[in-house]
Simulated scan of single mutants.
Amino acid sequence: MTTAYDFRLPALEGGEIDLSQWKGRPLLIVNTASECGFTPQYEALQYLWRTLGHSTPNGLIILGVPSNDFGKQEPGSADDIQGFCQRRYGVSFPLAAKSAVRGPHAIPLFRWLADEGGFLSHPRWNFYKYLINREGKLQRWFTPLTRPDAPRFLEEVQRTTFKY
């Protein structure tokens, strides 16, 4: 049976991100873009990373997956994306290389997320959020309209993060 921990992605800065390194930790996977109306969500994602993520030994891992699939809103190079995210929002959580997240060219992780979540979970725009539980299964997904600082989102993240 496949879990989120079975996937590897190219990293934005080169190399590879092996999700198995976070086995047993909850994951929040977000398809991102730098030139989108939802881009300010990076700020709340970074806040979650600082408060529930890297500062907590078994805390939430946030993984951004930049994509140019929607409105061509991530046109830049890896250096452009990294620089923008750090300068504008102080992003320090892991970022994958720019990847396709929909259609026949979608990376395997996003094909798996779509299969696990069903038809409505397929990303239709930037900043879809996929919450993975400690067993590596899709717990819940959220559209871009649900901000990372929305009470219902935070409740679900905290329930997943602090459930042992």
Rank of each mutant, 00 (worst) to 15 (best):
T161D: 05
K137V: 00
V157I: 12
P151D: 13
Y164S: 11
D6E: 11
L120E: 13
L27S: 03
P108L: 06
A97P: 02
E156V: 07
G103K: 09
Q46C: 09
G59K: 11
L95I: 06
L52C: 10
K72A: 15
W141M: 04
G117T: 07
S34D: 07
R147F: 14
T3L: 02
F93Q: 00
G136Q: 03
V101N: 05
L28V: 12
E74W: 08
A33Q: 02
L12K: 00
F70R: 00
T32F: 15
A150S: 13
E13D: 10
E13G: 04
A78T: 05
V91H: 02
G59C: 14
L154M: 09
E43Q: 14
A150D: 15
R159H: 12
G90K: 09
I107Q: 13
S34M: 10
R25W: 10
T143Y: 13
P148Y: 14
P94F: 07
D115T: 06
V30R: 04
Q158D: 06
Q41R: 05
Q46D: 11
E16R: 01
P123E: 04
W22Q: 01
F162C: 06
S92Y: 07
L95K: 01
P40L: 15
W112E: 01
R140P: 00
G117S: 10
R147M: 10
L109E: 04
S55Q: 12
E13Q: 04
T143H: 09
E156I: 03
S55K: 12
M1Q: 15
G15V: 00
A33D: 04
F142H: 02
H105K: 14
I132F: 08
R159L: 12
P75M: 08
L63M: 13
E156W: 05
Q139S: 15
R124L: 12
G117W: 13
P57D: 10
F93R: 00
L48T: 09
E13W: 02
E13P: 00
E155V: 02
E16T: 02
L45A: 08
L131Q: 03
T32N: 07
R25Y: 09
A33Y: 04
I29P: 02
F84H: 05
L27Y: 03
I107K: 09
Y5I: 04
L154K: 03
S121W: 06
N68M: 08
G71M: 12
F38H: 07
V30Y: 07
V65L: 12
F70A: 01
L12Q: 00
F84I: 00
G15Y: 01
S34C: 15
Y47M: 15
K23W: 09
F110S: 03
K129A: 08
L48I: 13
S77I: 14
F38A: 11
T160W: 06
Y164G: 06
P104L: 14
V101C: 09
F93P: 00
E35W: 09
V91W: 05
L113M: 05
I81P: 08
Y42T: 03
R102M: 14
S77T: 15
A114E: 06
S67I: 08
V91M: 07
N68K: 04
R134P: 01
I81R: 06
K163A: 14
K129W: 10
R87H: 12
I81Y: 11
R159E: 10
F142G: 03
L63D: 06
F153I: 02
L27W: 07
L45Y: 15
F38S: 05
